[in-house]
Design a protein around this nucleic acid. Structure first.
Lengths: 249, 249
DNA sequence: ACAGCCAGTTCCACAATGCGGAACAATTCG
DNA sequence: CGAATTGTTCCGCATTGTGGAACTGGCTGT
């Protein structure tokens, strides 16, 4: 392939320029030969990706997102690999399927799902799929441990109802975050789908930001019947803590 | 601005997916929801930027370029800020203008030029400009300390003559690299421009790769007359070593 | 040896997305 | 207050990025 994707080339030209020090739009424009408006637009996109950050004077510098990526580069072992044995253990403990999730700023993506091999009726495989952050316990648990601005961003958007039980009122959700932080886990009953119940606990990633979560879910007709909800919640939270400790290294 | 640059968003989606572990094109396609051909094309561009690398099995993982960017993020102080006092000192020592350069894989970019305030006839300001790697001493010094594959990449391209003295023969240049490594510096006399002479020494950056250089240059009619070329070369090399030591932290 | 499968790559018509000049908004300084 | 400077936004347009399909190469099973 002769030429690459120009936008990506330009983005990295800007990132490399910023790796030499804080710079403003005009300075970057002169140094890269790109028009000011192009630089500003690219920086705006890079900021959404957290690859750059704008300081108080309006200048730009590299952002945490680069450090996050580099942490993975240096770590060697993937986050999924680390989480997997813990998920298997939790699955065996509960007899239900277990999931590992990541918040990408917009939705919850299931990175890994470990199903109970003894169950014949199971919740379908969600690996790789996105679910709404406000309607699944992984999302709620992560939001509960996120900064005010992350919460505000999510709660200021349109929150869709998936069932009659989906909670979409921002004030109610904020109170719910308080409860989740106090409990250490989040339960969701038929809020995303009428036939799914689930409990999750949040995990801070290597950079210290809470973007991951582990959950247990099952069909509403049998889960969580016969299990103590508090006790199960605490087991999920304990699993989350073990994963988190191992991520920290 | 409502929507960002889609290509950049997609590129970072892929980078974040890879931060969770090595993955192939098909896997990434499923996980990101992007068509295989799009993923492949974006990966190709990211590879040129060294943000990803392809392993022997054809799968992709994060590349060194991310670590390079992160090094700057963690360092806090910019490379230019570190180099500046050393450049000023070298300028005062020599009475000529001094430059600090970076090799971006294709050409040499002058990041900073410190002029002698007492000179009335000076070489113009090259800050932010690109010069041909094979015709300026900074380029030659960096290439001399670069891997065989970097040298091959440059020497296999078309090497342009700028003056009657520009060296463009790859075999001759390879011998010259040997001499430069032995000397510790590189002199260029009227090879890029008939009225400029210059001497440079290479600097390894924080990641250990030799991508930087410091040079002294002046108008051919007076530089380097009256100065011992070996002695000046060694002074430039000493400045390079001091910058390098400080970069290493 | 051959066919099928699977993975990553390349091609190309097309339209969507990115572009850049110009206007805008905010801040600072004389 | 006006000018200069900086970063941001707008919008017509065409270039760039797209994605389906074909291609290429390697592996496996018959």
């Amino acid at each position: 392939m002769a030429g690459g994707v120009q936008s990506i080339e330009r983005a990295f030209t800007i990132l490399r320029a910023l790796s030499l020090g804080t710079a403003g739009v005009t300075d970057l424009s002169e140094r890269t030969g790109l028009p000011k408006s192009t630089v500003s637009r690219l920086l705006s996109s890079l900021e959404v990706e957290q690859a750059v950050a704008q300081n108080d004077e309006g200048s730009y510098e590299l952002g945490e997102g680069i450090g996050d990526l580099a942490n993975a580069l240096q770590g060697g072992q993937s986050v999924i690999d680390i989480a997997r044995p813990h998920l298997v253990e939790l699955m065996e403990l509960t007899g239900e399927a277990v999931g590992f999730n990541r918040f990408d700023g917009t939705s919850i993506v299931t990175l890994l799902q470990v199903d109970d091999p003894n169950s014949s009726v199971v919740v379908r495989d969600w690996t790789g799929d996105a679910t709404p952050v406000h309607a699944v316990p992984a999302g709620l648990a992560i939001l509960a441990h996120s900064s005010r601005s992350v919460q505000n961003t999510v709660l200021s958007g349109e929150l869709q109802s998936f069932t009659a039980r989906t909670m979409v009122d921002p004030a109610q959700l904020r109170e719910r975050f308080d409860q989740i932080r106090s409990d250490g886990y989040a339960w969701v009953f038929q809020e995303f789908a009428d036939d799914i119940n689930s409990v999750a606990a949040a995990i801070a990633d290597r950079s210290g930001r809470t973007t991951l979560a582990v959950h247990v879910h099952g069909p509403s007709f049998r889960f969580p019947d016969g299990l103590d909800q508090d006790e199960l919640g605490l087991k999920v939270a304990a699993t989350a803590e073990r994963i988190e400790a191992q991520l920290r290294g």
